[in-house]
Simulated scan of single mutants.
Amino acid sequence: MKEQFRQHIEKISPLNDETFDYVYSFFKPKKIRKNSIIISSGDLVSHEYWVFKGCLKASYILEDGKEKIIRFAVEDWWVSDYDAYFKNNPATLSIEALEDCEVLAFSFQDREKLCKEFPEIGYFFRKKIEGAYSAFQRRLVSMLSNDAKEHYEIFVQQYPMLMERLPKSIIASYLGITRETLSRISNASL
C-alpha cells in the first residue's frame, strides 16, 4: 500500500524518501468490510480516505427515503463528506463500502499541518481538489443537460471499470433512473 500511495502522490508532487516517510506516517491504514458505513449523515467528519483497494459510495437520503448516490470512490480516489470535513458541519452524506476495502485515513488537522510544512503537499491537494471540482461540474452539467441514455453512455465511457463491479441497481441510483430504465438503455446500447 505504501509504495502505491507514494506513486499516487508523486504523479503530482515528487518527494524525497525522508519527506515521504514523514508524510506517510500521518496516514492510518484501515480495513473496511463490505456494507460497513464509515460516515453517516449527521456525523462530525474528521477524516478523508484514500482508497487502496475496493469501492465506496457517497450517498444522500431524500425525505421520502430514496437514496441518491453522489459519487463513487475506487482505487486511487479520495472520498469524504467534504462539506463536513472542511467546514466542521454535520455530514449530509453517508459513505458505505460496496466491497471489502483497504484505505488510508487522513485527518483534517494532519492535512493542515502537512500542507503548511510542505508546499509540495499543499500543491498535491490543490491539484486533487481542482480535479474533483472539475469532475463534479461535468457530472452536474451532464445531469442537467443530457437525457438518461446520454448520461448512461457518458458513465460507461468514463467509468468502464465500474460497469463490471457494481450492481445495476447501484448504477441506476447514481444515474438518477430506475433499474428498469437502466436495463432498457443498456440493452438498446448493445
Rank of each mutant, 00 (worst) to 15 (best):
S107I: 08
E75P: 03
L104N: 03
F118Y: 13
Y82I: 05
K149Q: 13
D147V: 02
K113H: 14
Y85Q: 08
S94W: 04
V141W: 09
I12N: 07
Q137D: 12
Q109W: 10
K68Q: 15
Q137K: 14
L182T: 01
Y133F: 15
L140T: 15
Y85N: 07
R139S: 14
T181A: 15
G42D: 08
E67W: 11
Y123Q: 11
A172S: 08
I154D: 12
N187Q: 13
K68R: 13
Y49V: 08
E10V: 03
F136Q: 11
W78Y: 11
F118L: 12
K53R: 09
D21A: 10
G131P: 08
R33D: 09
G176A: 11
Y60E: 09
S46T: 14
K168A: 12
D147E: 03
T92Y: 12
M1D: 09
L140V: 13
F72V: 03
F52M: 07
E112P: 05
A135V: 10
Y82G: 10
D64N: 11
I171V: 07
A91R: 03
S189I: 11
K87G: 15
R138C: 11
R138K: 14
D21E: 15
Q157M: 12
I69Q: 02
K34L: 02
S183C: 06
L93W: 04
Y24R: 07
I185P: 06
F124Y: 15
R184G: 05
N35W: 10
L93R: 00
Q4D: 15
P14D: 09
D64H: 02
P14T: 06
R165T: 02
V51G: 03
E117R: 14
P160L: 08
I37M: 12
E164S: 13
A97S: 01
G54M: 01
K149F: 02
L190D: 04
